[in-house]
Design a binder for these strands. Structure first.
Lengths: 347, 347
DNA sequence: TTGAAAGCGGTACCAA
DNA sequence: TTGGTACCGCTTTCAA
């Protein structure tokens, strides 16, 4: 039943005995329809299983394309390159169907700059937003304000839970930490003397990676004799200096856990410290921009744990596009990308 | 330059001073256009950078939808469930744009049955094919015949290199084998006493997984004292019996490598043999249907190496669809899905 | 509050 | 070999 040719707006109009325009008003609740007529139309649509055809809508959308504004703190952070590639891949695929996107970027994690960039997107006429920003009150307010103003938002890469966003497209960071723990347990000898170089304490995902690791290590029964935590701000220079200092202070470190950017800086510090000449040091990182790939190939990093950044970009745009073409009825579901273990052999 | 509003067929027609119909004939080389007129139109299109709008085409395609026939040897092989989910996800996404798909399945690797199924798809009016079949001459001929008859083919999951197929969407199986080797080297003690349970010697991917493993083990310097090869035909019963016999014959086996289906049967045989009571046995498998997931969670399998089956299904359909809407001009590029390591912690 | 008509870009068909 | 016209499904606008 109902698995036949799709129902069109004209068929509904004919069945009810009204014009297509009237049906359209009901479909898109534009008002100005007598309630009882609206109800008859609604019933008929339900019975016949009507859903507006996306190709028809897309063709009209050419006049006012859907303009998705994208924001990423991606300057100087190669991780986001793949997310951006994903954005543009989706744009290329859906351009003919009335989609266009534009992008604003900042460097680092200063929340005022994020908010300013997002507001600029709105001023430039964004009809929707895909953003990766911080899990702090000011940023959440900014997102909620956009939604209240009728601009739907998808959270990319950073969860922003509790806001009015449509959905989240990104990684399960705790799972990433758990996975790292298991791998470490296979590589290292008890007890661990660990240096953790995290990105920013303001980024929830980075924190989740740390807690996910520590909890899982405890569950696995590994003892942690030393646990030093440093912040790199996703910057190679900063990472270099904090790592070098930590290694000098604690030459017994036998394991380095890098939750975010600054991977190159950490590895440079490891080389310069000469620590590896004295004992083995296991290194686990996250994500795989080109710099990290090279370090994996050279054996300076044992594993890197990835999160499908290309798909995050692609999926966010695609989901928003289909949300619009579907008449903004049902919010897209959260999309958790895979936790992907990369070693020299499969990178 | 050229980054402005997209050019429409009407603009070309007006610029050249002909009707839209005539331009349409040139765009789709339907002939019946005076050569010199055709040339003027072609030049104008090149200059102005014309490309037909996909939404317009999609709307028309509603009358004669693109019908993609899909073939998989998926009966009784849970691996393909996710590929099929990918097929239908793409169908749902593009249905409104004039796409429909239909599926034929067989059980196992009898090439005549594959060919019969594919020919049935053609008789049922497929305008394109997405197929996973064997890398043997008869199947290749069948694919080439379809292409010669004007029905483009995408090879899914199984490469079919050397045929006239549009492209391949699937895994790099050698890479899978290499990855398994590295993981084994982390888990096992030298020397390995290995049992290999492969799917079918007729499936190139399964063979690649075996050779990829053996080559990489040699490179890694691991010695292989025993190497027993059995065929499961992706069937749990067969897998059970060949495994049980092998374990009885060679109780020194300390490592089982399962390249394809029959994973449940192998693990059952391991339990029944009681081998694990005497010494540790490492088990590595491929792919993660529900049965395998459960075995990973219970610790009966150490790793499973996956290949993004959902994406294979989705991508094959999506690529074919865009190929049609793009006017069949440029063949889509090969799509190699990721080699994904799954352990209990990230499954 | 409603209907009628034009138009989005491309294709198909008939008449010239 | 060409042009004209209708149509795919939906939105928008104007008039009633």
């Amino acid at each position: 039943m109902g698995k036949n040719a799709p129902v069109t707006i004209r068929e509904i109009a004919d069945a009810v005995g009204v014009s297509r325009g009237t049906v359209d008003r009901v479909v898109n609740n534009r008002g100005k329809v007598k309630p009882e007529v609206a109800e008859r139309i609604q019933n008929c649509m339900d019975e016949m299983g009507y859903a507006p055809n996306k190709a028809g809508r897309a063709l009209v959308a050419r006049k006012n394309p859907i303009r998705i504004g994208c924001f990423l703190p991606s300057i100087g952070n190669a991780f986001f390159d793949e997310v951006i590639r994903g954005f543009w891949a989706a744009e290329a695929e859906f351009r003919d169907f009335g989609l266009s996107i534009f992008l604003r970027e900042t460097r680092g994690y200063r929340v005022e700059e994020h908010i300013a960039a997002i507001n600029t997107l709105l001023e430039e006429g964004a009809s929707a937003l895909c953003v990766a920003t911080l899990d702090v009150p000011a940023a959440r307010d900014c997102v909620n304000a956009a939604v209240a103003a009728g601009v739907p938002v998808i959270a990319v890469n950073n969860e922003l839970s509790g806001t009015k966003r449509l959905c989240y497209v990104g990684s399960d960071y705790q799972k990433g930490g758990k996975t790292a723990a298991k791998l470490l347990s296979m590589l290292c000898h008890d007890p661990l003397e660990m240096l953790i170089v995290t990105g920013s304490l303001q980024v929830k995902g980075h924190n989740d990676r740390v807690f996910g690791l520590l909890n899982a290590l405890a569950e696995l029964g590994l003892s942690l004799r030393l646990e030093t935590l440093e912040e790199s701000l996703d910057d190679d220079d900063v990472a270099y200096h904090v790592t070098l200092r930590a290694l000098e202070e604690h030459p017994e470190i036998n394991c380095v856990y890098i939750t975010a950017g600054g991977v190159g800086g950490v590895c440079q510090a490891l080389r310069d410290s000469g620590l590896r000449a004295r004992h083995t040091v296991e290194v686990i990182s996250f994500d795989d921009p080109d710099g990290t790939k090279a370090l994996i190939r050279r054996g300076e990093i044992d594993f890197t744990i990835c999160q499908e950044p290309f798909r995050q970009g692609y999926q966010a745009i695609s989901a928003m596009f289909h949300y619009f073409l579907g008449g903004k009825k049902t919010a897209p579901a959260d999309c958790l990308t895979e936790t992907v273990i990369k070693i020299k052999e499969n990178i």
